[in-house]
Design a protein around this nucleic acid. Sequence first.
DNA 1: GCATATTGTTAGCATACCTAACCAATGTCA
DNA 2: TGACATTGGTTAGGTATGCTAACAATATGC
Lengths: 141, 141
Amino acid sequence: MTIDYDNLASGLNSTAIHLLRRLRLQDARLGIGPARLSALSVLVFRAPCSLGQLAEAEQVTSATMSKIVSGLVQSGLVKRQQSAEDARAVRISATRKGRTLMKRGQRARILDLSARLENLDPTEISCLQGAVAILRSMETT
Amino acid sequence: MTIDYDNLASGLNSTAIHLLRRLRLQDARLGIGPARLSALSVLVFRAPCSLGQLAEAEQVTSATMSKIVSGLVQSGLVKRQQSAEDARAVRISATRKGRTLMKRGQRARILDLSARLENLDPTEISCLQGAVAILRSMETT
DNA sequence: GCATATTGTTAGCATACCTAACCAATGTCA
DNA sequence: TGACATTGGTTAGGTATGCTAACAATATGC
């Protein structure tokens, strides 16, 4: 059996981009875009970290992450603090406002994507969960 | 059994954004980004269409799609033609160069994402294929 | 014929990505 | 100890991509 990897790759590209476009609409109501939300969730659900660590977790350059963080700081969702171990580095953590927004953000997702997920049967759900896990493991390969 | 829809939704968001970031790096070598590639693939693998139809297929506004198409036209990958049925409308189709690129693009994906897909076992592959199909059907819900 | 709806383009704005350049702090080695 | 290399982060410049608003041309329906 020949597996059409190209077709699958193309399908992943297209579904990913469409999914993000839909989520972008939802996120706009929170006044925050996908990149900022993704970075903020790392800080809220994992731990405060350095800018370089955050950039690595999010797979962008530190230049890009510096800008994303600046936007988050401006919105009062995260704060930059001088690192105790290294004077070059900064430690970035979520503010109370940022943590609250993540909770509200999750609520908004329930109304849209999660609601659509609820229309699926359990095999489809576990299929998606499996796909997420696979793609995650591929990220670290 | 309680399904954590929020966690799955969040996982889908995060894996989608990371996947696209990785693809963006690859696509830059082809001189085309994910949005243009997605639009081009609609024209190549489905059919030429109007700008509004393309915008709808890609779930963006016609203003956005006008810009994406302008970039594709500038790269010689698609062409705009006056519609025969409606003087307001344009008909957008892939050029030979655009069709060739889709083939070459697919080849380049083999070297990156497709290559990583090749490391997966068949159950993982069919899981991803299933996920793409599920997400596609969710798009039209 | 005229009011309204449709189609697509452009302007303006914001976000998100990159590379390049730069500076300060830290680490390494003779 | 000091010269040099590396690290960490910021800013500038540029491109792409998303939106809304405004507009012109065309199509539709009364």
